[in-house]
Design a protein around this nucleic acid. Structure first.
Lengths: 160, 160
DNA sequence: GACCTTCAGATGACATTGTCATCTTAGCGA
DNA sequence: TCGCTAAGATGACAATGTCATCTGAAGGTC
């Protein structure tokens, strides 16, 4: 059971396992950035709606490909080139979210709120995926939490 | 290099590696709950201050014992008893935070905001620990983000 | 004190897995 | 046709999770 090839075959293409996984993460991040860009480009969606959809992209990865999701958010490892590529891809993806948040809250608040949204959405997704967000105890879904946060940020950004 | 004992010795006490790690996580969660309880019991600290300190407990674990931190937030594994114990401990720790948040925002908002704070604080810490919160790009510390969120929640809870 | 039980650690074995040196071979250009 | 090259196969080795078995120390019984 080696996916059709031998255990050692990948070492022809990657210096070690971590670098291979970093490459997988890089590709995933590129896809996420691409999807976020597509969301941002939608003509007939409100900025808030776009933000929700973009965050939903992340949460969907967490739910449907939890291993990939953990890979994306793990400390990048492997050879420096692989690490660098992964960090680049992560930054590009973050830039897309940053832009979407900026469209919603304006440039002055974008940095702070984009960072808060990205980190919070990750925490929410991660805890849900790992079973630390007991539906029984909290009676809140990941979407509830994201909505709460987005609404608060909208109010905050427009109110003052 | 086996910490003074042989590789197989722990199997006298735990059915498998995951169960041992779950027990380690359980103890850590108990300590965290204990610290949170102590913070809550401080007589001369404001509710907001207590919340900040309680969240700082979590962030400190992330920074000083990143492996332990990941263990705590990983999907619990091992034999059912170990998993159950870890889940219990996690719930107790969450209960302490829940109470502290309740002291700050009142009972009606406690559930929602406590869940948001716990998940967000985890996301912030996790991304910082794993190097996904580029200080260079965002120019924000984990503390900045937590403060932003706590302030927003305070305003939200008192304002309406 | 001799004897026995028990439990924790040691030992040695086995399977899995990350890694690598070496071998093989399909494909391709000279 | 010859020979190079790149990619996979093979076989080896080390680390590690796991377990069956052995050993020895501690304590209880007669």
């Amino acid at each position: 059971m080696c996916g059709g090839v031998t255990r050692g075959a990948p070492y022809r293409h990657f210096p070690d396992k971590d670098s291979l996984l970093a490459a997988v993460a890089t590709e995933a991040l590129d896809r996420i950035a691409e999807q976020a860009r597509a969301v941002r480009a939608e003509p007939r969606a409100s900025p808030a709606d776009k933000l929700h959809r973009a965050l939903a992209v992340l949460m969907t990865v967490g739910r449907r490909q939890p291993h990939l999701y953990r890979l994306i958010y793990a400390t990048p490892a492997g050879d420096p080139a692989a690490i660098h590529a992964a960090s680049e891809a992560a930054e590009h993806a973050q830039d897309e979210f940053f832009a979407i948040v900026g469209d919603l809250v304006g440039a002055q608040h974008a940095r702070r709120f984009a960072a808060l949204l990205l980190t919070s959405a990750h925490g929410i997704t991660d805890m849900e995926v790992n079973g630390h967000l007991s539906a029984d105890k909290w009676r809140l879904t990941a979407e509830d939490l994201v909505s709460t946060l987005v609404s608060m940020i909208e109010r905050q950004a427009s109110g003052e």
